[in-house]
């Protein structure tokens, strides 16, 4: 069984929000709802400064805090290492939102449950890739199997020493960033 992850190269991101729109289309989300954010970070001081765009989505943590705190057991990890939500079990207590350090979970007020990025697992199981990955015009994201040392993603992470966001939090995310 593969263990899926995404590598993100922020040096390529132009902040166009295509990934966000593609995600909203794919998941049928409303305009103000999203599983995908582009955070902006300014570095340096005038005149030598730069703005970095950092795409942010569910980190599919191996040690997922949301899964640990969910009282109904609605949050589980699939065999491919994707953190998923049992829609019929979620009561909407929002404890997982408080527990998530990356703050990437949102409430779906129609269904009354908490939802988030699920790596477009339906597309992936059919042999495709998540919508954010295939849509990106500058190919910021690489999707693939973290357990296969020969995969493009594993080689990218090794070559660029890509790291997850805040590894010190101990959540062991499956999304890796090349920041410079």
């Amino acid at each position: 069984m593969p263990r899926y992850g995404i590598a993100i190269d922020t040096t390529k991101c132009i902040g166009c929000h295509s990934c966000r729109v593609a995600c909203q289309n794919q998941q049928g989300l409303e305009y103000n709802q999203s599983f995908n954010w582009i955070k902006e970070k300014e570095r340096g001081k005038f005149p030598s400064f730069a703005k970095e765009f950092v795409p942010l989505q569910c980190n599919q943590c191996e040690n997922a805090p949301c899964q640990r705190v969910c009282p109904t057991g609605a949050i589980y990890t699939s065999p491919e290492g994707v953190v998923l939500v049992h829609k019929e079990r979620c009561v909407g207590c929002k404890y997982c939102i408080e527990a998530c350090p990356y703050k990437v979970r949102t409430v779906d007020h129609h269904e009354g449950i908490v939802v988030k990025c699920w790596f477009c697992i339906d597309l992936v199981r059919a042999g495709g890739e998540p919508a954010c990955v295939t849509t990106c015009p500058t190919q910021v994201r690489i999707f693939g199997d973290l357990d296969d040392p020969g995969s493009r993603i594993s080689r990218f992470i090794a070559t660029h020493r890509a790291e997850p966001l805040r590894p010190d939090l101990g959540t062991r995310p499956r999304i890796f960033y090349k920041r410079s």
């Binding site: 109904t72 079990r89 009561v91 909407g92 207590c93 409430v107 269904e111 009354g112 449950i113």
Partner: peptide, 14 residues
Amino acid sequence: LEAGLWQPWRQIYL
């Protein structure tokens, strides 16, 4: 709660 309020039987999962 949201779904747990509209569909109270879900609270059994708590």
